[in-house]
Simulated scan of single mutants.
Amino acid sequence: MNVLVTGTAGFIGFYLVQKLLDAGHTVYGIDSINHYYDVALKHDRLHACGIDHPVPDKEIVSSLNTNYTFCQLDLCDAEAIHKLFDTHTFDCVVNLAAQAGVRYSLKHPESYVQSNVMGFINLLESCKKTNCKKFIYASSSSVYGNNQSVPFKETDTVDHPISIYAATKKSDELMANAYAHLYGIQTIGLRFFTVYGPFGRPDMAPMLFANAIQHDEVIRIFNNGNLSRDFTYIEDIVTGIEKIVSTPGILREDVPGTPATIYN
């Protein structure tokens, strides 16, 4: 399959590219390479995939695998995204690009609306116009908010997000559901639970804790330490995504939850 993956300079995107290539797919990756965290880490991930010296709007074929092409693009640039779909044919889109970080959203809500909502709708519109029938996207466990029912279930009500980040992810799920039923696009939302592993984001707890320990600094905790969290290893995440990419979808309007589906 020809698969478009967004956010391929990011943590999950970096590993997914390799998993899809190993499975025999052709991958076109895009990323805006924003400055939410050190771009050197993002460039290191790209380099590990054979992509060096990216510049905006320039396609680069991997020096390690010619089935991987990368272009530095911003999802919020609707014209550029529509042009990409006009010049390339994609069998499946995996949207991992997003403005991440729950606490950051309290100070910069506009960044989340632009990337997570406007960028998301640009992709859905492009899928609609070019008849791309499979759209997989990253949602988040944050949509569950203060839900007290544990373990969380896909059937739980998630109408009360407690952060702007979570609100944008819930918005994505609603838009995906609408496009699925209006235009027959199979949309699959994945509510990730704090993914960790090598090359991970430096703003996540494992990296923050390890860095504090290494430098003999105080580990900052929240809510007086009265909290717990599920973590998911990166290899498990990308294995699941690859299986969803590779498994043919069955569009049945009579089955609840399809063609729009949510998974934890």
Results as ranks from 00 to 15, higher is better:
F222S: 14
Y263Q: 09
P54K: 09
V5D: 01
P56C: 12
V218M: 11
N95M: 12
A97N: 02
R103F: 14
Y28P: 02
T155Y: 02
T8G: 01
K129R: 15
A167H: 07
A100K: 01
Y37A: 11
S149M: 11
L46M: 05
E110S: 04
N211G: 10
V3P: 00
N226E: 13
D216Q: 12
E235G: 03
H181G: 10
F192A: 04
R220T: 15
L75N: 00
Y37N: 06
K133Y: 10
A40V: 14
L96C: 06
G13V: 00
I244C: 07
A212H: 07
D22K: 15
G29S: 05
L182C: 10
Y179N: 05
T87V: 09
D254I: 11
T69Y: 00
H160I: 08
Y36A: 06
D91F: 09
L41T: 14
I185K: 05
I33L: 14
Y104H: 14
T66E: 10
I250D: 13
A23S: 15
G10S: 02
V39M: 14
S111C: 03
L174E: 12
L123S: 03
K133H: 11
P151D: 07
I60T: 05
K19I: 02
G197L: 02
H181C: 11
S32V: 09
G189S: 05
A48L: 14
S32Q: 05
Q186K: 11
F199H: 14
R103Q: 13
N177E: 13
T168K: 02
D57Y: 08
Y179E: 06
A205L: 15
Y28I: 07
V117R: 07
P248R: 15
D52G: 04
E110A: 03
V113W: 12
D236P: 02
T239L: 07
K170W: 14
V158P: 04
Y196N: 09
A210Q: 09
R45W: 13
V93S: 01
S62H: 10
I33P: 09
L251Q: 07
V17F: 06
S171I: 10
N147Y: 15
N65E: 12
Y179M: 12
L227T: 09
R191G: 00
K129P: 06
T187Q: 02
V255G: 03
D236L: 06
L4A: 03
A97R: 00
N177R: 13
F135R: 04
N95P: 09
S111D: 11
G10T: 04
V245Y: 01
K133A: 09
L20D: 01
Q114M: 10
V27C: 08
T258E: 12
L182R: 07
Y68D: 06
V61D: 06
A97Q: 01
M175E: 11
G50V: 13
A80Q: 14
G50P: 07
I237D: 08
V117H: 12
N34M: 05
T187P: 03
R229F: 04
Y144H: 13
F199V: 07
I234K: 06
H181T: 08
P109K: 03
V158W: 03
I136A: 04
A210W: 06
F135M: 08
M204V: 11
S115Q: 10
D86I: 03
F135W: 05
I244V: 13
A176W: 00
E217F: 04
H215I: 06
